[in-house]
Design a protein around this nucleic acid. Structure first.
Lengths: 216, 216
DNA sequence: CGCTATCGTGGTACTGAGTACCGTACCCGA
DNA sequence: TCGGGTACGGTACTCAGTACCACGATAGCG
């Protein structure tokens, strides 16, 4: 982010807050930054682009973190990767909150924001897919887990953006723990065993039999 | 959908397929339909709008189906509601497939499509939220379940759009069964018993004990 | 020191989406 | 036959986005 681009971005956010997104023209932004219209489009491909940061480096870092995961530390790799994304937003501070106010009200921008998140979801999905080894197209479980990760992250992020959370990273840990416990029950709660038993007998009978067996 | 709007829509899809989305102007579409440019914008608010059907009635039907659900038939209500959406696409036939080819290649349209799905996700989320009675903002479980429903639906829909599925409704049933079993393990699979056993012994020992006990 | 290549910038002119507004034809009931 | 509503067509405008060119500063090289 060069000095010039920074000037343009600040001018844009000020005007968007004061006048509204639609009422602000690119000319207005350039004028306020003391620059020409051409210069704006040299630094940002569109009027929307000035709002959203370049996520490509974050996507790369997420991919790298996931690729570095060994067979044993899958949940921690996922949590770490989600934390990278979360931190990116939190580090932006008020800028992220201002963007949130815009995306909440302008449908066009909301769609764009969602599209960004889909990029992350794609990374998680490919990771989970490689992990489970299922073929593309029929791997609903991978899709579900990947979307659950992103949904959990977004929920924590939104709470922070609305100022409802002071320690988003701790909340992220909780949220990711819930997600992993839902999608891989055996992985949570060390010392617990989950058994799926097909039987014609009712649950109480089975439970009693198990307790009796464990007392042997 | 009036006769005029139908003519415009058909002309638009023909041109989008032949010339590409970006290369086709609204003038081209109107000319091909033998109508004026003003007429196009009277029937569709934007160039994108001609691609997407009006989902508001489907959203309403989904909401109504969910609202009509009794306390006992939650999973079937969710499945029914998802089926309403799926059927809407399937009934469109080749039109839906043509739209899919466009949304796959044009990022702008893809974002728009996803935004549409968010509408449905919202309905499911509110339904689940009312069901669980959790407060807004802290109800991660509701968000997760709602997104899982939509993801499952979309996966089935995409398979049909790509011609990989002959009986999408049956696949939807399977997918929704998986989702509900993940999010409410006790509810799936009649005749199965799920036991959570805390024990210092390893899983194999426990399993062996259970099998032995059930043979009694 | 002067010449040139390069890069960031500003300006101009264009295409195309979307809006506002007006004129007109047609249909339909009074 | 006469209003009045409705759907269409045309014109003119704003603004996003693209293409292109011209200018100035700076840096490297002879």
């Amino acid at each position: 982010m060069t000095e010039t681009a920074q000037r343009l971005r600040e001018a844009a956010f000020e005007l968007f807050e004061q006048e509204g997104y639609d009422a602000t023209t690119v000319d207005d932004i350039a004028d306020r930054a003391g620059l020409g219209r051409s210069t704006f489009f040299r630094h940002f491909r569109s009027k929307e682009d000035v709002i959203f940061p370049d996520h490509s480096d974050v996507v790369t870092r997420v991919r790298d973190r996931l690729a570095a995961a060994g067979p044993a530390d899958t949940p921690s790799a996922v949590t770490d990767a989600a934390r990278i994304v979360l931190r990116r937003y939190v580090d932006e501070g008020e800028l992220a909150r201002s963007r949130y106010r815009l995306t909440r009200t302008i449908p066009l921008l909301r769609a764009r924001e969602i599209a960004h998140m889909q990029q992350y979801q794609r990374e998680f999905r490919e990771f989970v897919r490689a992990w489970t080894g299922e073929p593309p197209g029929a791997d609903l479980r991978a899709e579900l887990l990947a979307s659950a990760i992103v949904v959990a992250h977004n929920q924590v992020l939104r709470r922070w953006l609305r100022g409802e959370s002071d320690s988003p990273e701790a909340e992220l840990d909780e949220a990711m723990a819930l997600v992993t416990s839902i999608h891989a029950p055996d992985a949570g709660d060390t010392g617990a065993t989950v058994l799926v038993v097909r039987s014609r007998r009712d649950a109480d009978t089975v439970a009693a039999a198990v307790r009796r067996a464990l007392r042997e």
